[in-house]
Amino acid sequence: ELKPWIEKTVKRVLGFSEPTVVTAALNCVGKGMDKKKAADHLKPFLDDSTLRFVDKLFEAVEEGRSSR
């Protein structure tokens, strides 16, 4: 259920769609990584945008959990 949101956010942050980043982000969430681990995992794909993306990712995960 997070996938469409992650795809949109990747496109907004990077300026283009990147399926590799979407898959990696879903893996981070699925494995229950904390922000630091997720950022380390995604840094090779996102460079300077990593922290901004990870912040948005974790906000969305929290919103998703609290709306259930």
Rank of each mutant, 00 (worst) to 15 (best):
L2P: 00
V54Y: 00
D40E: 15
A60P: 06
F58Y: 14
T20K: 12
M33C: 12
L26S: 03
A38I: 09
L2A: 00
E7K: 09
N27A: 09
E1N: 09
S49D: 11
L51P: 13
S49L: 13
S66W: 07
S49K: 14
S67C: 11
V61R: 06
K11P: 00
E63I: 09
V61H: 03
L42W: 00
W5I: 15
T20P: 05
L2R: 00
T20G: 10
C28A: 10
T23C: 09
E63N: 11
D48Q: 07
A60L: 12
R12Q: 15
L51A: 14
A39D: 02
F53M: 04
E63C: 08
R65I: 12
P4M: 15
S49F: 08
M33S: 03
L14I: 04
R65C: 11
T23M: 11
V10C: 12
G30W: 13
L42G: 01
F58Q: 04
L26G: 03
L14V: 00
F45G: 06
S67A: 12
L14M: 02
F45C: 07
V10M: 13
E59I: 06
V22M: 05
K43N: 01
K36T: 10
K8Q: 05
D55Q: 03
G30A: 15
S66L: 12
L26D: 02
C28P: 00
R52W: 15
R68G: 12
E59M: 03
E7F: 06
R12Y: 05
I6S: 01
R12M: 13
K56D: 14
C28I: 11
D40M: 13
A38H: 02
L26P: 00
T20H: 14
K3E: 07
E62A: 09
V10Q: 04
T20E: 13
A38Y: 05
I6N: 00
E7H: 04
A38W: 11
P19I: 01
D47T: 13
G32R: 10
T50G: 02
K8S: 09
L42C: 02
H41V: 14
K56R: 08
G30Y: 15
A60S: 07
L57V: 06
D55S: 07
I6W: 00
D47V: 10
K37Y: 04
A24W: 02
P19H: 04
A39R: 06
F53T: 06
D47W: 08
V13G: 01
G64V: 13
K37R: 12
E18K: 09
E59P: 08
L46H: 05
F45I: 12
R52Y: 15
E59K: 06
D34M: 01
E63D: 11
S17N: 07
C28F: 01
V22K: 03
V13E: 10
K36S: 11
V13M: 13
V61W: 04
P19A: 07
F16R: 12
G32S: 07
M33Q: 05
K56W: 08
R52H: 14
L42M: 12
W5P: 05
F45N: 05
K36Q: 10
K8P: 00
L2N: 01
P4L: 15
V21P: 03
S67G: 14
A38T: 11
P19R: 06
T23S: 10
C28T: 04
D47Y: 14
F53L: 04
T50W: 02
K43W: 09
E1S: 07
E62S: 09
P44H: 06
V10N: 00
K11A: 10
T23P: 03
V61F: 09
P4G: 15
W5S: 11
V13W: 11
S49P: 01
R68Q: 10
C28G: 02
R52K: 14
D40N: 06
V21K: 03
E7D: 03
K11L: 09
K56Q: 11
L42Y: 00
V13Q: 06
T50I: 03
A60T: 09
T9F: 09
D48G: 12
T20D: 11
E1V: 01
V22H: 00
E18S: 08
D47I: 09
L26V: 07
R65K: 15
K8E: 10
F16T: 12
L42S: 03
S17F: 08
K37C: 11
E59S: 09
L46N: 03
A38K: 02
S17C: 13
L2H: 01
F53W: 00
R52D: 15
E18G: 06
A25E: 14
V61G: 05
L14R: 01
I6P: 00
I6R: 01
L14H: 01
F45D: 06
G32N: 11
E59R: 08
A38P: 00
H41K: 05
P4K: 15
E59F: 04
T20C: 05
R65Y: 10
I6C: 04
D55F: 00
A25P: 00
S67N: 11
C28R: 00
P19E: 10
E7R: 06
A39Q: 12
E59L: 07
D48L: 04
G15D: 07
G15I: 00
G30Q: 15
V10P: 00
P44Y: 01
A60H: 15
L51S: 14
E59G: 06
E63F: 08
R52S: 14
K31N: 11
E63S: 10
K37M: 13
E59W: 04
D34T: 12
L2D: 02
P4F: 15
R65M: 11
L26Q: 07
V21N: 00
S67V: 14
S66Y: 07
A24C: 08
A38F: 08
